[in-house]
């Protein structure tokens, strides 16, 4: 039974993670979830209930674009890739995250 991350994902963090994932190249939805889980050693588990609405929302906002292609197993799958606008958004999100975590660290981890 996969345990749900009850640390709660900070608002907007999932979007940033998806953008970062796609910055390495086009992936389908399952691929995005798998990559995040693998990379974080399953510390972050992406729920399908959040992932797909997020992908559709980001597509609507023009941050990512989708194309139907053939998956590694030879099946038709919808691949997402980053747009120029998505790339800029990723840069913004990263910078904001850095500022935020630095600030929080100053409180939680005093030198």
């Amino acid at each position: 039974m996969t345990h749900k991350s009850d640390t709660g994902m900070l608002h907007g963090t999932l979007d940033a993670l998806i953008l970062k994932t796609l910055s390495h190249g086009p992936r389908h939805g399952y691929g995005v979830a798998a990559w995040i889980e693998d990379t974080t050693d399953r510390a972050v588990v992406v729920e399908e209930g959040s992932l797909y609405p997020a992908l559709y929302r980001m597509e609507r906002r023009g941050l990512i674009e989708a194309e139907w292609g053939t998956s590694e197993l030879g099946r038709k799958a919808k691949f997402y890739s980053l747009t120029a606008r998505g790339r800029r958004q990723l840069a913004d999100d990263t910078a904001q995250w850095t500022r935020f975590s630095t600030a929080v660290s100053k409180i939680l981890l005093p030198a």
């Binding site: 399908e48 609405p53 559709y56 609507r60």
Partner: peptide, 18 residues
């Protein structure tokens, strides 16, 4: 996956908006 029906509906709605 959880409530697959609801996710499906949400995605459809956003997709149509798009």
């Amino acid at each position: 996956f959880g409530n697959i029906g609801r996710v499906n509906a949400t995605c459809r709605a956003i997709g149509k908006q798009r």
